[in-house]
Amino acid sequence: MDNILDVRGLEKEYPGFCLRDVSFSLPEGYIMGFIGPNGAGKTTTIKLILNMIERGGGSVKILGLDNIEAEETVKEQLGAVFDTCYFPSKWNCGDVERAMALFYKRWDRARFFDYLREFGIDRGKKVGELSRGMQMKLMLSCAFSHEARLLILDEPTYGLDPVSRDELLDILAGYIENGQRSVLFSTHITSDLERAADYITYIKDGAIFYTGAKDEFEDMYRKVKGGPEDLTGELERKLLGLRRYSNGFEALIRTQDLRNSRLLTEPATIDDIIVFTSREDESYE
């Protein structure tokens, strides 16, 4: 299985924030969810992949090519969708087409207008008059019209209603269908990932906490609940993000630490894992 994206030891330093040794790979034909709390380094990583900011160290390879040395070739293969539309609000779809056609060798004008029709985007409207969902679809139409093989989405579902989010997930599923394209999908709405993602990369405080298959990620942890008498010192050392209540506690625990335990457990969602691993022990007495 070939990797479409290979990130190795990526580093970037800002005052008060540091991205350290970020490494992960995305194979061809899959969707990877890129998750983490606000300020964890998701957007910085995406900007480094797109070479929009200068990296401090490490390497990014897209289709086997370095993203800086072969920037033009690499970006021909890339499509990007951000939380807000990057086209000027006074442009219409014709302006968008004219602008994009200048830069992409494999730009297909007819395909672009076909996508606009398919997505129900009114060609006569200005970008600023389109809804958030339509703006997101306009950015996707551009990415699809130059045959991008790697689609990078930074919080694309931010501010979208559930119907538009559902449509996006269907579009992404269709996009990777031929097995040669991949999607890196940064989001806060982890329910989207439960449905669409094959892989998860979880970044926390500028470092990778987990990267791998989504199912393994979910299986790695369990949510555990118990009364005050169940919370022994030995157990406490194994718990992550312990929340104490007057009548007991709840926390996250690694599945491997649960052997022979009679505690009440339930499957942990991706949200649970992010929340419990991001917060210190808390009391709600």
Partner: peptide, 14 residues
């Protein structure tokens, strides 16, 4: 006014 700087960032140019 519209964050179009990101558009230049994703285009295949240096």
């Amino acid at each position: 006014t519209c964050g179009a700087g990101r558009m230049y960032g994703m285009l295949p140019i240096r």
